[in-house]
């Protein structure tokens, strides 16, 4: 029983991160109908920026509890700039091109970012400094530590905040309007370029936070870390219904749970015939199953909902 509870906790923590990254995919898709494959790389850049800022500040003797939020803000600013730049350089000139073209530039941007990061931060793994005591807590035999609790709480807070922005503010209304019909929104006086830029920047800021979470949780950052994470988060977004904010959250959490329960139990269930080497396969198996059975995802690609 405690093993089962532990797998649920593992899945929720992992799923929160997926959900946060998935939001970035889904927001951009909702507005532009474009899969921003460079988003995983933005998460990586976020993690690297936090780490660099943190190392620099700790070196100067800034207390850790001050250095952490400041570096996170710096990284968010850096990622917003990056997100804006990516949209401006790689997507805006192709906005009216066939859909395949921006998809290819997206993959190109992803490769460029990965290699740039390799040149700037090197090929080695960067260890993330342990800033808080990271006390383990026992819940019915299972263990969850401080960082993991913070991850889940922060993810929930950010998602609620984002929902509020999209549904309650002027900006959110503009985003929904652009999602529904770009031309009509423009005629109504919405500056669509500005709305699209802001969407990219919002998604990138979330990516920076996700980057911090991942690297703090696993204690490492690496220029390659964004690739798999991006793919999984994309799967989560599709699972929930791409373009749908609630879907991204649900999809992320579900995917995290499926992975950890799957990897934890498949060996015992199939008598050792299938093993935990299929952990990564679950994500993509789920993707295929969803695309075949319910192409618009669990919550559907509801137009009125998407932002």
């Amino acid at each position: 029983m405690e093993i089962f509870l532990q797998q649920i906790i593992n899945g929720l923590v992992q799923g929160s991160v997926y959900a946060l990254v998935a939001l970035g995919y889904t927001m951009v898709y909702g507005i532009l109908g474009l899969i921003n494959f460079a988003h995983g790389e933005v998460v990586m850049v976020g993690a690297m920026l936090v780490l660099s800022a943190l190392t620099a500040m700790l070196g100067l003797g800034v207390p850790p509890l001050l250095a952490l939020p400041v570096s996170l803000l710096l990284a968010m600013a850096g990622c917003m700039l990056l997100g804006y730049g990516i949209e401006r350089v790689a997507y805006r000139p192709l906005r009216h091109a066939p859909r395949l073209a921006p998809l290819i530039t997206a993959i190109g941007v992803s490769i460029v970012l990965q290699n740039l990061a390799m040149m700037i931060w090197g090929r080695e793994y960067h260890a993330f400094p342990q800033l808080i005591n990271n006390q383990p807590h026992h819940i019915g035999g299972a263990i969850i530590n401080d960082i993991q609790i913070i991850i889940v709480i922060m993810a929930v807070m950010i998602m609620t905040g984002l929902m509020a922005v999209v549904h309650r503010t002027r900006l959110g209304r503009a985003m929904r309007a652009v999602a529904e019909n770009q031309h009509a929104a423009q005629l109504m006086g919405v500056d669509i370029n500005r709305v699209i830029s802001i969407t990219f920047m919002l998604g990138s800021a979330l990516a920076a936070i996700a980057g911090l979470m991942v690297s703090a949780n696993y204690g490492l950052a690496h220029y390659y870390m964004g690739f798999m994470l991006g793919l999984k988060a994309f799967t989560a977004a599709v699972l929930g219904g791409i373009g749908n904010l609630r879907g991204a959250m649900l999809g992320g959490l579900l995917l995290g749970l499926i992975e950890s329960l799957g990897a934890g139990y498949i060996g015992d269930l199939t008598g050792g015939f299938l093993g935990s080497q299929y952990q990564d396969v679950f994500a993509f198996f789920v993707l295929i199953a969803v695309l075949v059975l319910r192409p618009s995802g669990l919550l559907g690609e509801r137009l009125a909902e998407r932002a």
Partner: peptide, 21 residues
Amino acid sequence: AHEYTSDKSVDFTAVLTAVKG
């Protein structure tokens, strides 16, 4: 127990939990 992962993974909590059992 004999569990598996990949040479690109960073998250092992699921397999380690299975091992712990």
